[in-house]
Structure formats: structure tokens, C-alpha cells
Amino acid sequence: TEAEQVTPVLLDGLREENLQFISKLKDSSSSCAVDVSSVWWEAAGCRELCVVTACESSVSLWKPQALDCWEKVYTWQLGEIPVIQIIPLPDTCNLVCIALGNLEIEEIRLLLYSSENDSFKQSLVKSGNIKAVLGLKDGRLVSSSTTMQEQQVEIVSVSETGRCKDRQTLMPPEETVLAFAEVEGVSDALVGTTAVNSVAIWNLKTGQLLKKMHIGYSYPASICHRAYSDSGLLFVVLSHPHAKESESCGNPAFRVVAFNPKTARSTGVMFSSLPPGHTGRYLEGEVKAACAAAVLSSGCIAVWDLLLGCCTALLPPGSDSRWAVVRWSAAGSGLLAGQEDGSVCVYRY
């Protein structure tokens, strides 16, 4: 019965299933899945890809067992501020980074295991009015935060013992930065999307703000998910939570836009719209390589091939719980889908 509830819908007569249900984990003490992620965790010389689940008051680490089962290893209890996001830290092990806050992020914390005193612990990385945060390679976190006077864009390097090793500031743009993405193919480049719908480019090594490029008025409040440089152009994958439906593009969830960083001119390359006949809109999602997944306001999860611009799978809501969050696994082609009742389903894409 459980498997029937989470069987992917096949679109437009597709014969093969693009999403294969693997396993389900359910935290009986958790009320609602706030976020889900995967993390490499090493214990007793064995390094495994584990699942991290977050509800408002706690974060749990789940270890894979035989026969597609999961064992809860540990639960970190958090304080009065609710957990609102898990922040993936690429290429790290035994580190979970989380954001806590109410409407906006108020704290960034690290959750870890300390072998020194054989205990699980947590440490504060940053507090303030934090607008956006992203985990970068080499154990770094970039965040934008605002005070009464100005905006601060800061990079913090963290160690696997939970200590902040180094802090560096980047030149802030005038407008608030709402999302960041590293630029694949240019090791020291970072982009961010801003509240006035611009893409900013920084040099991570020098902290310079190199360029601001306007995205256009048709797609307000665009959020960057991925960026890569190819043939002298900067390609940025954007989501459009507030885009209006149009006859030419349907209801766009994701868009790939090519920018010429030298001239700040841009052109749309590919649209990924909601499936035909599907009502509602994009709520939140994640991009990995050429794949995008998002939760829609209908309670479904949709998956797109960004290069083809087409929806490749659609997970309907369960009979008793809607989808709340979707994330790509850090390794392989796994998809983690969280339901409102706190359970998480693992799929292979």
C-alpha cells in the first residue's frame, strides 16, 4: 500500500519509470519535514552516505542498513529558534550545517560528532539578519546579512571540529542578495541573485564585485540555483517563484539564461515549465547538474531535464500527506522527498 502511494506518474505515454522508489524512513517523533539532505558520515572507519532530516525543533542523522532500511543514529535537539533549512556543505564529512530562524535566518549552526570527548555537539557559526547562505567547496559558507546601515557578504571557513578558521568579506552590492551559486568552470567565481532581479558576480579570492547584470522584468524575484561558464558565456539556472503564466512559455519553474559577463547582455536558452494541464505553481526546489526537482503548490513533486526543457516525472501527493520538500542526494542519482507528516522517501532517478 505504501509503495502504491508513492509510485511516480508517467507523463505523455512515457514507457519507462524515471523515478524508482527505494525506501522510506519515518521519524515517529517528528511532526513535519522542514528539510532533508544527505551527508557523508564516517564512524569506526566506515564512511557512508547518510540522510539528515530536520523538523522545527530537532535534526536527526540516519544511517543506511541492510534491505533498504534506515537506523536513526542521533538527534540533535535545538533551542527556541526553529530550524528552517539544512545547508549542504560539499566535500565535507561528519558535518551538518543548519539555518535557524523565523521568517528569516537568525543563526547558522554546525552539528557534529566530537571524538575528543566522544559526544555529539553543536556550534554557532554566525548570527544576525541573514538573507541567504550557501555551502561552498573546501568547507566554506557564504552568506549575506543586513544591518540598519549596510549589507555584509561574508565567507566563513569551518573545520571538521566545528571551529571557524577564517572570515573574509566580499564587496556587497547595493541591493540585498537573496541566493548564491558557485560558478563551475571558474574556480574563484561566485554569482548571486538580488532583490532587484540582478545577477552579481564576485571574485572569491580578491572579494571584488565584478559585475551586475539585470535579468529582466518578466520574471521578478528570480533565484539562482546553478552557474557554469562555457565558451565565454555564463549560464545561470534560475527559478521563478513569482513568474506569471504566458502563452509562449506556459508556467515556467526553471530557466537557463546565458549572460555575456563582458557586456551584461543576456538571452534565455531553455524554459522548464510545469507539465501541461497542471495547475498551481513552483514552490521550492533544487538543481543538480542538468536535473531540477521542485515541490508544486498542488502538493506534487516534478522533475525536469533542464537541457531538454521537459518534465520527466511527476510524484502525486500521498493519500494522507502532501510533499513538503525535495532534495537531490549528494552522491549518485538519489532523490530525497519529504512529506508533511515527517516521512522521507528515497528514489533513484
Binding site: V186, D188, A189, I201, N203, T206, Q208, L209, L210, K211, S229, S231, G232, L233, L234, A258, F259, N260, P261, K262, T263, R265, S266, T267, V269
Partner: peptide, 23 residues
């Protein structure tokens, strides 16, 4: 897209912008 849509393209855009931008 063509060069004429986006203007002249440089493969070294990152290095060029870094040398032009204020420190």
C-alpha cells in the same frame, strides 16, 4: 544565440573583469 545578440564574447571574461573592477 549569436555574438551580435550578446556582444563581443571573451573566453577570459573572469580575468578581464577582475583586472578592470575596483579592488
Amino acid at each position: 544565440c549569436s555574438d551580435s545578440d550578446l556582444g563581443p564574447i571573451s573566453l577570459d571574461w573572469f580575468e578581464e573583469l577582475s583586472s578592470e573592477a575596483p579592488p
